[in-house]
Design a protein around this nucleic acid. Structure first.
Length: 679
DNA sequence: TTAAGTTCA
C-alpha cells in the first residue's frame, strides 16, 4: 500500500482520546492522556501485531460487544476512525465462532482502496494468506461487490454476519444496502447485522432499524483545536489564503504543513496564483512556501509533489478538493483551513439535467476535515464559518446521494433482484418519486421493462452490465449491428467521464489541436472516443503516445480495464464479439439504440431542442461538433447545466433511424419536419 | 465566445 492512502484503522500511532467543546466560538479541548505503549523488542513481527491489537480502543469492549451481538440481531456501532472497529470486529466474530460451518462474515466499504487495505491488514493479523480465509471483492478482482453478490444469493445464505461500515457517508450503495438487508433480516433471524457509523446519525440509523441498540466505542486521535470565524466569510477563498499566510508568518516552518479544502480545479488554480503573488510580495522576509495542488483529475505525475517530504526550512500548503477528506491522507499536516463548502452533483429529474452546485458540507465532513490535522500530532482547524453554522446549519443542508442522482441504474438492479414495488421500497430517505417514475419510464422506453413494469429479456441482459442503462442498451443492441467490439470500447470510454483529454492552461491551443485530430472524418464524439481508444491500442497502449496527444494515461488505463470487464460480460450474456469498423452508420445505429431517448434537433436560431421533453440546449464547447459541423439531428450522452444548458458527447444521426429503432417511442410525425420553423 | 467533485459497479 502506498502510504498516500488511508491507513488501515488501528495503525500504531500514539493515542489520545479527545473530546471537544465549543463555547461561544472559543474552543476548549479536553483531553484524556493515555500512555504511549512500549513494546518489547524481542518479539516477532506476528507477535507484535497481536500485541498491537490489544492496544486498540475497541479491545476493552471485546466481550461486551460480542455479548451485545449475541443478544441482538441488529446493532448500530458508533466509533471514530482509529478505534480499530473495522479490522477487529470481524476477527472477534471469527474467534467467537461465527465462521464455523463455512459461514462468512461480510464487511462493506465505500471505497475500493479501503476494501483492499483492510483485507490485507486483517489477513496479516490473522497470519493467513490474503484470498484464502480473508479476501476482498471489488471490480476486476473477484467478480463484484456485495450489491452484485445479491444477484446470485438474494438471502445472503452463506453469511452469518454483515457489517455495513462507514454508514454515515450515505452513499447510494449503502442506502440501497440498508433497504435490502433490513428486509433479509426479517426472514433470516440467524443473520447478524452491524451498522457502523460516526456519531452523528446513530439515532437515525437506530430508528430505521426498528430501534436497534447503539454500541459506542471511543476513538483515538491527537487533539484538534477548532477555531471559528466571528462572522461567516463572504470571500472564503481570500479568507483561506490570508489565514494560510498568517499561519505561515507567525509560526516557524518546521512546525507543520497547511491543508486548505477548496471546491474544485478552477478555485485551486486561482488560489495557487494568488498565493504565489502574495509570497513574492513578501520576498525573502518569509520562509519558502511550497504550493501543492491536488484534485482527482490532476495528472499523476503532478500529484506526486504532495507526498514528497517538506524540505527543511520550508512549509507546504496543500490546496485540495474533498479528495483529501477520505481518499487521500497526507502526512505532516498540522493546520487545516476549512471554508466549509463542497461541490455536489445534483440531478433534476424533471429536466434530466445534471449540475454541480457549491453547497455547505455536512457535519460528518467537517469533522473528517478537522481530523486531517491531528494525524501525526496535535492539530488545529480553522473553520471559516461560525460555531452557530456548525451546530445549526450544516446537517440541514445535507442531502443523501440517493436523493440527487439519476435512479435508472438502481431501479434496473433492484428489478433484477426481484424487487418490483419500488415506490414502497423501505428507503431510509426515499428518493423523490418523480426520480423513480422517470427511471421507470426510461427503462420502459429502452424495452428493459414491459408494461407491467417487469423485467424483459433485454432488461435481464442489460442488468448484467455495471453501466448506465442507456449504455447497456447500446451494447445489447450492438449484437444486431455486428459491432459489439466497438460498442464496448465506446461504453468504456464514456463511463470514465470527462477526464480523458488533458488541457493545461499554458498549452490549450496544442491540446485543442490534438483533440481535433480525433474528430477528423467522422461526425460525433462517440466515434471520436472510439478513435482515441483504437489509436492508443494500435500503439500497443503507449504512454508516450498519450503525452503527445494530450490524453490522460490514467483514464485510458481505466477505460482498458473496464473494457476488459465488459468483454467478459458479453460472453456471459452470449453476445458474440463482432467488429464492423468501417460501417460508421452501423455503429451510430447501435449508439442510437441506446441513446434515442436523448435526441435533439437543430432550430433556426442555431440552438437545439430536445425532442421528447422539449427544452433548448447547446452542443457543449468541448464537443468536436461544436465548431465544425452543424448537424440537424443528434443524440447526446447527457445534459449538463454549467453556465448554459449543454449536451455532452454528441453524435449526428438520421431522424428516420429513430422511427426505425424505437417505433414505440417515435412516430413519423415527430421527425418529419426536419427543420423546425418556430420555437 | 466556452469547459465538472469524488466515489463505485
Amino acid at each position: 500500500m502506498p502510504d498516500a492512502y488511508d491507513d488501515v484503522e488501528g495503525g500504531d500511532q500514539t493515542e489520545v482520546i479527545k473530546a471537544e467543546t465549543v463555547v461561544d466560538g472559543v474552543n476548549l479541548v479536553e483531553q484524556e492522556e493515555l500512555s504511549v505503549v512500549q513494546l518489547p523488542t524481542a518479539k516477532t513481527a506476528f507477535e507484535k501485531l497481536q500485541s498491537d491489537r490489544k492496544t486498540l480502543p475497541v479491545y476493552p469492549y471485546r466481550e461486551e460487544l460480542l455479548r451485545a451481538i449475541n443478544d441482538h440481531q441488529i446493532l448500530i456501532i458508533v466509533g471514530e476512525t482509529g478505534s480499530g472497529k473495522t479490522t477487529q470486529i470481524p476477527q472477534y466474530l471469527h474467534e467467537a465462532g461465527y465462521t464455523s460451518r463455512g459461514r462468512k462474515i461480510g464487511c462493506t466499504q465505500p471505497r475500493r482502496v479501503a476494501a483492499m487495505s483492510i483485507a490485507a491488514r486483517v489477513s496479516q493479523e490473522m497470519g493467513v494468506k490474503l484470498g484464502h480465509e480473508v479476501g476482498y471483492s471489488i471490480r476486476f478482482e473477484d467478480y463484484g461487490m456485495l450489491l452484485r453478490e445479491f444477484l446470485g444469493e438474494p438471502d445472503l445464505a452463506s453469511y452469518s454476519v454483515l457489517m455495513v461500515d462507514e454508514a454515515h457517508e450515505r452513499t447510494l450503495s449503502t442506502d440501497i444496502l440498508f433497504g435490502l438487508v433490513k428486509d433479509i433480516a426479517r426472514f433470516r433471524p440467524d443473520l447478524k447485522l452491524l451498522i457502523s457509523s460516526a456519531t452523528l446519525d446513530a439515532e437515525k440509523f437506530s430508528d430505521y432499524f426498528d430501534s436497534a441498540p447503539i454500541f459506542k466505542i471511543p476513538g483515538r486521535r491527537f487533539p484538534v483545536e477548532i477555531h471559528y470565524t466571528k462572522a461567516p466569510e463572504a470571500d472564503y477563498l481570500d479568507a483561506a489564503i490570508v489565514t494560510a499566510l498568517q499561519i505561515h508568518v507567525t509560526h516557524p516552518p518546521g512546525d507543520g504543513d497547511i491543508l486548505i479544502f477548496l471546491t474544485g480545479q478552477e478555485e485551486i488554480e486561482i488560489a495557487e496564483e494568488t498565493l504565489k503573488h502574495k509570497t513574492r510580495g513578501l520576498g525573502s522576509k518569509i520562509a519558502e512556501l511550497i504550493i501543492c495542488p491536488i484534485y482527482a483529475n490532476l495528472p499523476t505525475e503532478l500529484q506526486g509533489k504532495i507526498f514528497e517530504p517538506t524540505p527543511e526550512g520550508a512549509r507546504k500548503v496543500v490546496l485540495a478538493t474533498n479528495i483529501a477528506e477520505t481518499s487521500l491522507t497526507i502526512d505532516g499536516i498540522k493546520y487545516v483551513i476549512d471554508p466549509g463548502f463542497v461541490k455536489m452533483k445534483s440531478y433534476n429529474p424533471r429536466t434530466g439535467m445534471e449540475s454541480l452546485l457549491v453547497t455547505p458540507i455536512s457535519k460528518a465532513s467537517a469533522n473528517q476535515r478537522a481530523g486531517r490535522s491531528g494525524r501525526t500530532g496535535p492539530g488545529k482547524c480553522f473553520r471559516l464559518y461560525t460555531a452557530y453554522n456548525y451546530y445549526n446549519d450544516l446537517d440541514d443542508n445535507t442531502v443523501p446521494e440517493i436523493q440527487r442522482t439519476n435512479m435508472a441504474n438502481v431501479v434496473l438492479s433492484l428489478k433484477s433482484l426481484g424487487i418490483n414495488d419500488l415506490l414502497n421500497f423501505d428507503f431510509m430517505d426515499p428518493p423523490p418519486s418523480e426520480a423513480l417514475l422517470k427511471a421507470l419510464e426510461l427503462l420502459y422506453a429502452l424495452s428493459a421493462l414491459n408494461k407491467q413494469g417487469e423485467l424483459t429479456k433485454v432488461g435481464r441482459r442489460m442488468a448484467e452490465f455495471p453501466l448506465d442503462p442507456m449504455l447497456s442498451k447500446m451494447i445489447v443492441a450492438s449484437e444486431k449491428y455486428q459491432c459489439s467490439d466497438e460498442a464496448i470500447s465506446i461504453a468504456a470510454m464514456l463511463s470514465i467521464g470527462n477526464s480523458i483529454f488533458y488541457r493545461p492552461k499554458d498549452k490549450q491551443v496544442h491540446a485543442d489541436n490534438a483533440r481535433s485530430n480525433f474528430h477528423m472524418g467522422n461526425v460525433g464524439d462517440h466515434l471520436a472516443l472510439l478513435k482515441v481508444y483504437n489509436s492508443w491500442k494500435d500503439t500497443n497502449f503507449s504512454t508516450q503516445w498519450c503525452y503527445e496527444n494530450y490524453i490522460q494515461v490514467r483514464s485510458m488505463k481505466r477505460a482498458r480495464d473496464i473494457r476488459g470487464q465488459l468483454e467478459g460480460l458479453l460472453e456471459r450474456v452470449e453476445i458474440e464479439k463482432t467488429s464492423n469498423p468501417n460501417d460508421l452508420d452501423a455503429i451510430k445505429k447501435a449508439i442510437t439504440s441506446g441513446f434515442f431517448p436523448h435526441s435533439a434537433k437543430l432550430q433556426k436560431n442555431g440552438s437545439y431542442r430536445t425532442v421528447k421533453h422539449p427544452q433548448t440546449v447547446q452542443i457543449h464547447p468541448s464537443s468536436g461538433l461544436a465548431q465544425v459541423l452543424i448537424p440537424r439531428w443528434v443524440v447526446y450522452h447527457e445534459l449538463v447545466l454549467t453556465s448554459k444548458e449543454y449536451m455532452r458527447q454528441v453524435t449526428q444521426i438520421k431522424p428516420e433511424w429513430l422511427v426505425e429503432i424505437a417505433p414505440h417511442y417515435y412516430q413519423l410525425k415527430d421527425v418529419e419536419d426536419h427543420l423546425v420553423s418556430k420555437n
